[in-house]
Design a protein around this nucleic acid. Structure first.
Lengths: 187, 187
DNA sequence: CTAATTTTTTGATATAGGTCAAAAGATTTA
DNA sequence: TAAATCTTTTGACCTATATCAAAAAATTAG
């Protein structure tokens, strides 16, 4: 099972805890287009995506739809601040493909955090990994041209580059879709 | 003691653990200009800044000095990925003011993580807080004009806006110093 | 299979903010 | 306190990318 492997790749834990933890995750197949979370709602569940694609996004002041993050195979999907601080989310989340996911509720995960030091460590490590990815993206965006940003995406997340719609990728990279379309046609 | 208060604001822990934890932190007064970490070095220490200002930065391909993050009073200062994953840092860190700091070594913090579930939780919470700040900054930079980015800084980190040199602030916001200078003169 | 809708491409034009250069102001050093 | 160094400001000019508009292509729905 991929979820088991994922957890073990992050932290080494006793087989019994691993089994208990996996037991709290419930397998759910969700169709493309499913809205996982609405703006203003508190994120109650954390998902592991076994196979699929999703994104978090929001509408800015001008009403433009801006993609914040993509989630794909073998990764966790969650609105971090909303879930961990149990406060209303600034972002929405939706599935871009039919997906096989495993979900765990906040309360159940909290129980596991309380009960097992190693699960708490899992949480810490996962957060730090996310943080690292985020710093990478920030640097890519902060001082690079549109072309370089797209190169960064292809290099780091090649699957997303060809699975996600162009408009979503463009806003994720902080450029317009017209510009991204022109960059693609150049290559 | 400010460090104690900071820890307690993040996680509630038994007085005994709090005391032991604080005991591992060593008070160090460091002068302005101190290089805390060089590019390529592995970050061995995590700092709590009681009073002072620092930044992390790197030189990009064009040799331009780019500020990644500021650290100031009552916050932790660390090169996150380098410290927690004990790998060479992409960034340098330096003090921008004479500072009062408390340092703890990676090994000692690791000991505390191993020994106390609540310290592990402290680590998780701190990471998530950082993550939240980072997401905020990313959004500010991704789709806002130079003026709006500066407004974001003033709103969110007013102390930095007037304590850090203009050039560092500009690169932190992903704009040139000339542009920031013009924005300031408009206000 | 066709119509309706959504996504992507292409073209023309405008502009925010970059680059380069040099002056003015501040801070540090001896 | 003068010289040296570093930081900020100002000006002129230029370019990458945004915006607006409309056609073309792809996808979805009836």
């Amino acid at each position: 099972m991929k979820l088991e492997k994922f957890i073990q790749s992050v932290v080494d834990m006793p087989q019994s805890v691993l089994q208990e933890m996996c037991g709290y995750f419930k397998k759910v197949n969700l169709p493309k287009g499913t809205q996982i979370l609405e703006q203003g709602q508190t994120c109650k569940k954390l998902y592991f995506i076994e196979k699929g694609l999703a994104r978090s996004y929001y509408y800015n002041e001008k009403g433009k739809d801006v993609t914040v993050w993509f989630f794909s195979d073998n990764n966790l999907m969650v609105s971090v601040e909303s879930f961990f601080q149990q406060k209303p989310s600034l972002y929405q989340m939706e599935l871009l493909e039919n997906s096989i996911t495993y979900e765990i509720s906040y309360d159940n995960l909290q129980k596991l955090f309380d009960r097992y030091h190693c699960v708490e460590r899992f949480g810490r490590r996962v957060s730090i990994d996310l943080l690292t990815d985020l710093v990478d993206k920030l640097n890519a965006i902060q001082f690079q041209t549109a072309k370089e940003r797209y190169a960064f995406l292809i290099d780091k997340y090649p699957d997303i580059a060809y699975r996600a719609p162009l408009g979503h990728i463009a806003s994720y990279l902080g450029i317009t879709q017209e510009t991204l379309s022109r960059i693609r046609s150049e290559i």
